[in-house]
Design a protein around this nucleic acid. Structure first.
Length: 950
RNA sequence: GCGGGGGUAGCCUAGCCUGGCCAAUGGCGCAGGGCUUAGGACCCUGUCCUUAGCGGUCCGAGGGUUCGAAUCCCUCCCCCCGCACCA
């Protein structure tokens, strides 16, 4: 009697543990080291986590079947702020946080314990390990660990890593604009905003125009247009401030001065000046070093930039139209005391050649869009975007740009900015283009942080090495490569330190903690020694130890002495590392491509020699449940443990495997999870009943069945190697179950050795996905040891008889046709008469195939070639349509006419039994043919006649 | 805007790179039949239209290349994902 599924699963989990089946030791065999990003332990594992873990698990078990010495370790991540923040909310008694804990089955009287972050760190890893074991993962738990300073050994490892980066100059102190909350006194990430998601600080270049030893400061987003500056715009009504900025006197809007004071500038207001007071004066423009006049306009906004704008009428529609306006505005010029001649002498300067535009794109678009004056703000905004796009992406700097002439705008932009910054003619200012509001309801500002530490992912040489690493890696699926390439190029310096949260302190600067993505980039190496190093005293955890173990510096004896460690221990760690590293595969959700996985590449190339760079990444989408995104609100959210309770571990694993591969979101089908368990039981019963029983004669159908089995094994391995688990399940399970049913239908009693082999190998393939029931089968059929560590026979081409497969296919196709015809003729009395194709048709088929293979594809040409055979020509006018069909079908089983005839004659009895009619096999043209059906016969497609012959 | 992935039958999915056994894989659902006291499970069959199997239409839409297109090329429409100081 079959036992309860849960009991059965627990039984095998217990046995694996007792026998230490998955504890990996360095050995002689070929190793396979795979791992998965450790989970952040602020809650129970859910089905979403489980997808990635199960894919790792499938690979681990598959590789064991193929004879690899597999290391699959696991750890827990506690670095960062969420746990600390959540604990704080518990301390405050925040109801929503309490409810989250309640939803994780935490008893009421234990809730308060979670006000201490340490309690989270103690509680959830235990629960996670329990749940994962309940899922049947083949993890070497001896190597588990926890991040942060709570684990001195890991803490030392991270400090070592940062020292290595630091000494190479790859960790630098940097200045960086961030969206900042003045209330929380911290950066406001996207997730912490109630308004303004996706907003980033926009970089304005402040241009300094010298005037009487002071500077009028204009802001621009297009520094490359400085060569086309003709004048400045100010708002005559606006009161600008004169401010002492870093020792210079700047004229700019009050708001701009305020912003600068938050962006690492020393700012003190020393006076003020109305725009009107500046009109008509001239100031020396940066870069071009030429005095240009100051003119009035209505579009200067003190909130935006500095409230003063440099005018580039050639490429800025606003400037163009404002210039047109002022030139025509006699009264205005008079009011502000401007010399009309001076104003009219201001002419645009062509600076950029871009696709589809002449000398002055701004003028062209103003005309094209029919913009009449400065008041048409919406149209002007659109015009600005159009010009900017074509200028930026297709534009090339003209002669006037001096040394930048001929350079694409895309490149010139940054170079020109940098030159002006260097010469002190410009500065930077950051601002938000749209409001951002922090979760605490405070409007955010842009702050420039300058004591922040960065990892220099923007570094050119480092990027080159990262690209080299990527080029040598296996990616599953391969389509992720483009994504990775893009990320490696796009990644900029990464702020790697935080003031708050759990973690490791920066070794040379106690004020900072290493941030959570940055302490998890090379820790896969730590797995190789984690079970050994954890026993060492803190005094032994020195950089020289890690230098030796991971980089081979110094020698074991010296290091042992320095650290007061047994030399054996040091040697053992070095051996473990050398044996296991690099890792062969790391599996993760696709969301980590743009940060964690790319960081992993970077850090490996910085710290390890090339032979220890990562070998492979597997990436996957996010789980859907019954086609829906998993969410608490839709009720589709499932913790791992509740799912196991509902469906069993094997069922979940199998369903996940069948959910789909690739970067698209795979679907967990609850219906399948609900039904698959029964199929497993059926398989168990079947194996029990049939293993080792049957006849000893080997018949044609037995050869077919063995061939079907091994061709499936071959395909299964091909798919599994590429992490195509869905295809692996289909080939290794579903297809074979179908073949099995067919086999049983085709023979009264199976062949003893073939059916036993089938049960054994199928169980091995299934064990990757459903290990528990597979162990049960393995034991039932009397195999020793565990199926989990058994080896699948190498696919042997000798066990695959392709003629047997082809002949069976002819039969199956014929039966499909017969079913169809019989369905149509209803109860017409009579026998089944089959006509195999006449001799000449086989020649014809060969001839057609040959000419097509030779590259002759024109119907005419094939015809004339074929008709040169007198035997074929004899059949005259029926040939053309046949040739047409043969060209189209190109049916190409390997067997010939004789084999087909033999197969049909052999199976006449079977057919007769299946269809309940007598079956006769004839050859076209050599038997009666009352309805003229025989002429339809083709190779591999006998003609059919139902009825009685006279 | 930048970059990436997609659109296949009732639903989900395979096939596409390397064109041809592709009316198109497998699962789920649904229907009929078998088995069964019944139900479930299991097995068989069917699940675009048509039809004594060979026909027609079909793989987001429209063109093109080819003897032949789900697959290659062009144009268009639509959907999803990432764009950072965060796990």
């Amino acid at each position: 009697m079959a036992m309860n599924t849960a009991e059965m699963e627990l039984k095998w989990q217990e046995r694996w543990r007792e026998e230490r089946v998955f504890e990996a030791e360095p050995g002689n065999g070929e190793k396979y080291f795979l791992n998965v990003p450790y989970p952040y332990i602020n809650g129970l594992l859910h089905i979403g986590h489980t997808l990635t873990y199960s894919r790792t698990e499938f690979m681990a078990r598959y590789k064991r079947l193929r004879g690899y010495n597999v290391l699959f370790p696991y750890a827990f991540h506690a670095t960062g702020t969420p746990i600390v923040a959540a604990a704080g909310r518990v301390a405050d008694g925040e109801e929503s946080q309490m409810n989250i804990l309640r939803s994780m089955d935490i008893p009421e009287d234990e809730l308060s314990a979670f006000s201490d972050p340490l309690h989270w760190v103690e509680y959830f890893p235990i629960e996670a390990e329990r749940d994962l074991n309940r899922l049947g993962v083949s993890v070497d738990w001896r190597r588990k660990f926890m991040t942060t300073s709570l684990n001195p050994a890991y803490d030392a490892f991270i400090r070592w890593q940062f020292n290595r980066l630091h000494e190479q100059g790859l960790v630098r102190k940097g200045r960086h604009p961030v969206v900042w909350c003045t209330h929380d006194n911290s950066p406001v990430g996207d997730h912490a905003r109630i308004e303004g998601e996706g907003e980033m600080p926009q970089e304005f270049v402040l241009l300094k125009f010298e005037i009487d030893g002071e500077y009028i400061v204009a802001a621009t987003l297009r520094p490359e247009t400085v060569f086309g500056q003709t004048n400045l715009w100010v708002d005559p009504e606006e009161e600008y401030v004169k401010a002492d900025v870093d020792g210079e006197v700047w004229i700019l809007s009050k708001q701009a001065a305020q912003k600068l004071s938050e962006q690492k500038h020393e700012v003190a207001t020393v006076g003020s000046v109305f725009g009107s007071q500046l009109l008509g004066k001239e100031a020396v423009a940066p870069m071009i070093r030429r005095p240009i006049p100051i003119l009035p306009s209505s579009f200067c906004d003190p909130e935006k930039g500095t409230g003063i704008v440099t005018s580039v009428p050639s490429d800025a529609p606003d400037d163009w139209i404002a210039l047109v306006d002022i030139k025509a505005d006699e009264a205005g010029m008079d009011r502000y005391g401007l010399d009309p001649e001076m104003v009219r002498s201001v002419e645009p300067i062509a600076i950029i050649t871009s696709e589809g535009w002449g000398d002055f794109p701004a003028g062209e678009i103003v005309e094209r869009m029919g913009i009449k004056d400065q008041t048409e703000r919406d149209k002007l905004l659109e015009a600005k975007h159009v010009i900017y796009r074509s200028g930026f992406y297709t534009g090339v700097m003209r002669e006037v740009a001096g040394e930048y002439a001929g350079m694409p705008v895309e490149e010139a932009k940054d170079r020109i900015r940098d030159e002006m910054l260097e010469k002190g003619e410009a500065a930077l200012m950051f601002e938000l283009s749209n409001p951002v509001v922090c979760r605490c309801l405070t409007p955010s500002i842009v702050k420039v942080v300058d004591d922040q530490w960065f990892i220099a992912y923007g570094d050119h040489d480092w990027k080159a090495r990262a690209r080299e690493c990527l080029a040598g890696m296996n990616l599953y699926p391969e389509v992720a490569r483009k994504q990775f390439e893009h990320v490696l190029g796009w990644l900029r310096d990464w702020a790697c330190t935080r003031e708050l949260g759990l973690g490791t302190k920066l070794p040379w600067d106690d004020n900072w903690m290493v941030e959570s993505l940055s302490d998890s980039t090379i820790y896969m190496a730590y797995y190789t020694i984690s079970h050994i190093i954890t026993d060492l005293p803190e005094a032994a955890l020195t950089d020289s130890l890690f230098d030796h173990v991971f980089l081979g510096k110094s020698d074991a004896a010296t290091v042992a002495m320095e650290t007061g460690t047994e030399i054996d221990t040091v040697e053992r760690m070095r051996e473990e590392f050398l044996y296991w590293y690099p890792f062969d595969l790391r599996v993760s959700g696709k969301d980590l491509i743009q940060n964690h996985l790319s960081f992993t590449i970077f850090n490996h190339t910085a710290i390890f020699p090339q032979e220890h760079w990562p070998r492979g990444f597997g990436t996957n989408g996010w789980i859907l449940i019954g086609g829906q995104k998993m969410s608490k609100s839709s009720g589709s959210f499932r913790t791992l443990r509740s799912a196991i309770e509902e469906w069993s571990a094997d069922a979940i694993r199998f369903t996940l495997a069948y959910g789909g591969d690739g970067l698209d979101d795979p679907n967990f089908d609850p219906d399948l999870a609900g039904t698959i368990g029964d199929k497993f039981n059926t398989w168990l019963e079947f194996a029990q009943e049939r293993y080792g029983k049957g006849v000893d004669d080997e018949r044609a159908i037995d050869r077919w069945f063995r061939s079907a089995l091994y061709s499936a094994v071959e395909d299964y391995c091909d798919h599994m190697d590429l992490m195509e688990f869905r295809a692996g399940v289909k080939r290794g399970y579903y297809d074979l179950q179908r073949d099995l049913r067919w086999y049983l239908r085709r023979c009264d009693e199976p062949n003893r050795s073939v059916i036993s082999e089938f049960i054994k190998v199928t169980t091995q393939m299934l064990s990757v996905f459903a290990p528990h029931v597979s162990e049960e089968v393995w034991e039932t059929i009397g195999r020793s040891g565990f199926v989990s560590v058994s080896q699948i026979p190498d696919p042997d081409p000798g066990s695959i008889d392709s003629d047997a497969l082809d002949a069976e296919s002819v039969l199956v196709d014929l039966m499909d046709d017969l079913r169809e015809v019989l369905g149509l003729v209803g109860d017409t009395p009579g026998d089944i008469h089959l006509y195999t194709a006449a001799d000449w048709k086989w020649h014809l088929a060969d001839a057609v195939r040959d000419s097509v293979d030779d590259g002759v594809v024109k119907f005419q040409d094939v015809m004339s070639k074929v008709m040169s055979d007198p035997e074929i020509r004899k059949n005259g006018k029926v040939v053309p349509p046949l040739v047409k069909r043969l060209i189209q079908e190109r049916a190409s089983y390997g067997i010939g006419m004789d084999a087909e005839n033999e197969k049909l004659s052999d199976e006449a009895d079977f057919l007769s039994q299946e269809f309940g009619r007598k079956v006769h096999v004839w050859t076209e043209g050599q038997a009666e043919d009352p309805m003229g059906k025989a002429k339809n016969a083709l190779p591999y497609k006998p003609a059919i006649f139902i009825g009685n012959m006279e």
